[in-house]
Design a binder for these strands. Structure first.
Length: 806
RNA sequence: GCGGAUAUGGCGGAACUGGCAGACGCGCCAGACUUAGGAUCUGGUGUCUUCAGACGUGCAGGUUCGACUCCUGUUAUCCGCACCA
């Protein structure tokens, strides 16, 4: 019989489906294990060859855990709200709901074709009103607790999507999604107070089993820094508050800088002699996008405020105040004390404007370059701080400032609150109404979900308002509180809303009374292993940790963190090593690969392609190698059918034990490529030594998480009991992983000369005797003296020789 | 600029706590079977070479009996952050 992968794959997918082999059981007695992948966005393009990489990896883990006796939850769903669908729908004059429905159907078919062991009875769709009802419900809780608030503020506005973006969605000054320019715009927006959780989001990382680069990235994004706030009196009779991480250098503060947007300017404006100049600078700064500002960062600009000066609280000196866009309005207090001697940016600015540079930390030459070392410096020119280390000076000055009531210790974060409104149709409606009398009023829980209106037109408006704003019938409603006239909020939620809690819904997808039932959450607890893309580190991953903590505070979930372990995969690149994209025309469609080689080959290749955590270029020739491997397995099994089934063949025993160990360990460590390599080696060994039925059966069990269809088919043909995916994961015997005879490397003066074969675990003396009687070694030793012998057990022997001294 | 990672044959990549560099696969070469092969099987495949060996893990040093692995310096590429005071 030939290996007819198409027929085989269909057959087993059907069997698994009918027997519900991969259904997770709530409340089972078995230990539970929750494996999660990031659910896909069902785009119109269908499944990309990049999708199966993380899916196959986690499918392997899920299948292995089941074989190890766990009750595994390995779910799938669709994150279906969002712009691409809406844009596609507008272009093709379809309803986003229809587009979504079609795309989900297509994705489902493609995912099933690859044989993933998802529990298909728990599928969720974020656009299903039964689902987004609970997304809205959580939002109302945020609102109730004061963590959702509306604020007028400058926001990132994507000129192409006609929609605001969260800070996390702006990459290099352009829209993360469409690459269009992002400009600043003043808008009134719903915000989520993620900053309230900054400290916990940071600290709790320590206890999590996340790969280091994820933790680092989140830490940098949260950006905690400790310092002090200090009030400077001004000649205008008021106070200017600054934040600094170097309060120790206060004696060196020779001028101040405030951001062009700083509020205090308004009250100073009348006193300014160069008012017009200042206003012109403000206007110029306002016109620039954030990106343009940083682009021009190379050259510092600024204007001195003529007419107001500040007083350095420790020196008593009057110092000038500047406005400059190198000071950000959104961080700290929007104002800084400038210490040009010990800060790169202040130094640069001072040099340009000819401002005095005072050394207050000794260790460098502040005329040449700012001295920023905080480890070795000693305070000078700093009155009562002189002679102290930087660290000691910090605590002393903070003590002093606190006592005087002009400053205090302060912690700041880079993390900003989350801009949560989007001016688009295809998202969850924000369940609030605005009443002239009562203000913002939540829609009562009993009236959830607030459904998206079913309308013909949902195109973007040019005014920057949500398309929902044009739907009078939907907008105009009555106030749930007073019954008077009210208007619905017309902005919708961002794409990240539905995905912030989806892992909870999988535990109990059909619950009508709660987002997740108490028993279900108690049983499943939290996700044990979550794999996803690095690009979500400061978006989805951070957002969902925030939501989870909030739900934890409400007492709705038992853990303060949603994911115990987080790993991440590299991208699949095009053949030339470039990113796969439609415009480059180098996109590989998984359907083509499955048609030509089968799903098992695709799965195997995508795991064999290279280090799972690194990017790897696709190679259409290398795919064939994996197909060839499966062909060889097939032939081997056909031959073994007539062979005995009692115990491993003695010749293969050591290799089998080694492979069981290697494959098992490698799966846990994301080393799928070497796991497959070891399976290939085992097959090579079987071909050389011959093999019996028991040998092949163990091979099939080990292979089954990677290439489940062929394993299942051959298992059946070899007369295996039950299903291959239901077999217990094999055990290995450490003692049996080593061959009876082993090869030892022989080095002379550190260089490999030859090898010898000795019995495993031979005594050193035996090894030395064998080596010394070796012809090659004897020749090399002629006329030389053996000074030293180094033996590494079962590995290597190194003979140190010297010319004989006469 | 700051932080992190990476650098190994023609290619993708292996190498445990310092112990036979190049596992496994692709490609290539030779042979077998073939009407045929872009199928299959067998063998070979780091470089140089006087066939004894010499040289080889970005580059320059160092530690060690022994270094892809540790240390110092340096270059390149990728990723993240990007005036965060």
């Amino acid at each position: 019989m030939k290996y007819d992968f198409t027929a085989i794959e269909k057959k087993w997918q059907k069997t698994w489906d009918e027997k519900k082999c991969f259904a997770a059981v709530n409340g089972s007695d078995k230990p539970k294990y929750y494996v999660l992948i990031e659910f896909p966005y069902p785009s119109g393009e269908g499944l990309h060859v990049g999708h199966p990489r993380p899916y196959t990896a986690m499918d392997i883990v899920a299948r292995k855990r089941r074989m190890q006796g766990y009750n595994v939850l390995f779910p799938i769903g669709f994150d279906a709200f969002g712009l691409p669908t809406e844009n596609y729908a507008i272009k093709h004059k379809m309803h986003p709901r229809e587009v979504t429905k079609r795309n989900i159907a297509r994705f489902t078919e493609q995912l099933k074709m690859l044989g993933f062991s998802f529990d298909w009875d728990r599928v969720i769709d974020t656009t299903d009103p039964e689902y987004y009802k609970w997304t809205q419900w959580i939002f109302l809780k945020f609102f109730e607790k004061g963590l959702a608030y509306k604020a007028k503020m400058p926001v990132n506005w994507c000129t192409s999507c006609k929609c605001v973006l969260a800070n996390e969605e702006v990459v290099d000054g352009v829209c993360e999604r469409c690459g269009s320019e992002v400009v600043r715009k003043e808008k009134s927006q719903w915000m989520l107070k993620i900053t309230e959780y900054a400290e916990r989001l940071l600290n709790d990382l320590d206890e999590l089993d996340f790969i280091e680069r994820v933790k680092t990235q989140q830490r940098n994004w949260i950006g905690r820094s400790t310092g002090a706030e200090v009030d400077f009196e001004t000649t205008a009779g008021d106070k200017l508050r600054v934040f600094t991480t170097r309060p120790d250098t206060l004696f060196g503060a020779t001028y101040m800088v405030i951001s062009p947007e700083h509020e205090i300017l308004r009250s100073w404006l009348l006193r300014l002699e160069n008012k017009d100049e200042v206003i012109a600078y403000q206007e110029a700064a306002a016109r620039k996008s954030d990106f343009e500002r940083t682009e021009m960062a190379k050259e510092k600009t600024g204007i001195e405020l003529k007419g107001v000066r500040a007083i350095n609280p420790v020196t008593g000196n009057e110092i000038p105040i500047f406005i400059s866009d190198y000071v950000l309005a959104t961080y700290g207090t929007g104002a800084i004390m400038a210490v040009p001697g010990h800060d790169d940016r202040d130094w640069e600015f001072a040099k340009k404007f000819g401002l005095p540079i005072v050394e207050v930390v000794r260790g460098g030459n502040v005329e040449e370059a700012p001295y920023t070392d905080i480890e070795n410096g000693v305070m000078v020119n700093s009155g009562f701080l002189n002679g102290l280390s930087v660290e000691n000076a910090k605590s002393k000055i903070i003590e002093w400032l606190t006592a005087k009531g002009i400053g205090k210790e302060k912690v700041n974060f880079k993390l900003r609150d989350w801009v949560f409104s989007r001016q688009r149709y295809w998202g969850e409606p924000i369940p609030l109404v605005y009443c002239e009398k009562c203000g913002w009023v939540p829609v009562p829980e009993s009236e959830l979900p607030v459904l998206l209106p079913d309308v013909e037109s949902y195109e973007t408006t040019d005014t920057g308002e949500s398309p929902l704003a044009l739907m009078d019938e939907w907008v105009n409603t009555s106030c749930p509180k007073c019954g008077g006239k009210a208007k619905r909020e017309t902005d919708t939620m961002p794409q990240w809303a539905g995905s912030s809690w989806y892992y909870l819904r999988y535990m109990d997808p059909d619950n009508k009374d709660a987002l997740v039932g108490e028993d279900a959450i108690k049983y499943w607890n939290r996700v044990d292993w979550y794999n996803g893309g690095m690009e979500h580190t400061t978006l989805h991953l951070l957002y969902s940790r925030f939501w989870h903590k909030f739900l934890y505070d409400l007492g709705l979930v038992p853990t303060s963190e949603p994911y115990a372990k987080r790993t991440s995969h590299g991208m699949i690149l095009g053949e030339g090593g470039e990113k796969m994209s439609k415009s480059r025309g180098n996109v590989i469609n998984p359907n083509d690969i499955v048609n030509e080689f089968g799903a098992d080959t695709l799965r195997l290749y995508i795991m064999f392609i290279g280090d799972f955590e690194k990017a790897a270029p696709w190679s259409s020739t290398a795919v064939k190698g994996c197909k060839r491997f499966l062909d060889r397995v097939w032939n081997l099994a056909e031959k073994a059918m007539a062979m005995p089934d009692k115990g491993y063949s003695p010749k293969n025993e050591a290799a089998i034990h080694r492979t069981i160990k290697k494959v098992g360990d490698d799966i846990e460590n994301l080393k799928f490529n070497t796991a497959i390599a070891s399976l290939m080696s085992l097959v090579n060994e079987f071909s050389e030594n011959g093999c019996n039925k028991a040998d092949v059966k163990i091979l099939l069990i080990l292979l089954s998480p990677f290439a489940p269809h062929i394993a299942e088919e051959l298992w059946e043909r070899l007369g295996g009991k039950g299903l291959c995916c239901g077999q217990p994961w094999p055990e290995y015997d450490e003692a049996k992983t080593v061959e009876a005879e082993i090869t030892i490397a022989v080095q002379i003066n550190g260089k490999l000369r030859t090898t010898v074969t000795v019995a495993n675990n031979s005594e050193d003396s035996v090894v030395i005797d064998t080596v010394l009687s070796d012809e090659k070694v004897k020749r090399a030793m002629e006329g030389k003296e053996l000074v030293k012998t180094i033996v590494v057990k079962n590995k290597l022997i190194n003979l140190i020789l010297k010319y004989q001294s006469s």
